[in-house]
Nucleic acid binder design. Structure first.
Lengths: 121, 121
DNA sequence: CATGATACATACTTTAGGGTAAGTACTTGT
DNA sequence: ACAAGTACTTACCCTAAAGTATGTATCATG
């Protein structure tokens, strides 16, 4: 009979948290630094891979495709590749991705408000 | 004359990105897994430290105070400590934090919609 | 004939974030 | 006298994420 530590075994609770807390659920899908930024840049329309790359100079190529793949497999963006050479690949938001735009827009809105100092006394 | 690598030195661009992209700006403040979840639980009113802890069983104490401290120093939450013993400390949203609620609520809304499958064909 | 553009893939290394565990100070309860 | 509750703090470790660098296929262009 080993003693049960209070702070241990966080993983069991995580599944519970996922089913319980809607924000946790969303965080599992877009809760990384780059994903909302990518979605933001896709919100203005379909973009080629290289276009997205140019719009986010701070991201490395590895991070960019890695997150694009994850977003794709989570059903948030749709990848379309034309079988031509040189390759022509576009990414666009899926319906789920479009559904996330209120989140992204709220983020942008807050940033402008915060910079304007409207929350200051 | 050392050759300049295309993918290198991301940090210079990051400052530029911060000033340019509003979503990047917001991500610097709440772009971690736990922060939106904490803000979500504070959105229903002031909470004692131990209350927040109980509301988010999946988080460790270390992560919880670490993020609370960061949120405090970023001006998103306000910490109030009564000089009593045992300690009585409450956390609440600042004006900036309240300004973020549309973001958090949009996240929650999306989660429910996604689970209901309303984005499916 | 070698360079550039396209959209990636991959090996390797580093770093930072997160987890585990234990400790602190003070009081109330049993 | 000892445990329990409060709100933390600190040290240590470990893994997953991110950065670095290079490679791939194909064609157009100079």
């Amino acid at each position: 009979m080993t003693a049960i530590k209070k702070t241990s075994t966080i993983q069991e609770n995580k599944q519970y948290a996922l089913e319980t807390c809607p924000v946790t659920y969303t965080m599992e899908k877009i809760g990384s630094y780059w994903k909302p930024i990518i979605l933001y840049h896709l919100s203005t329309g379909d973009k080629r891979y290289s276009e997205v790359k140019r719009m986010i100079p701070a991201i490395t190529e590895k991070m960019l495709i890695q997150h694009l793949k994850q977003l794709e497999s989570d059903g948030l963006v749709i990848r379309e590749a034309r079988p031509v050479v040189p390759p022509f690949v576009t990414y666009k938001l899926s319906n789920s991705g479009i559904g996330l735009l209120p989140v992204i827009e709220a983020m942008a809105t807050w940033a402008f408000q915060e910079k304007d100092g409207i929350f200051k006394p």
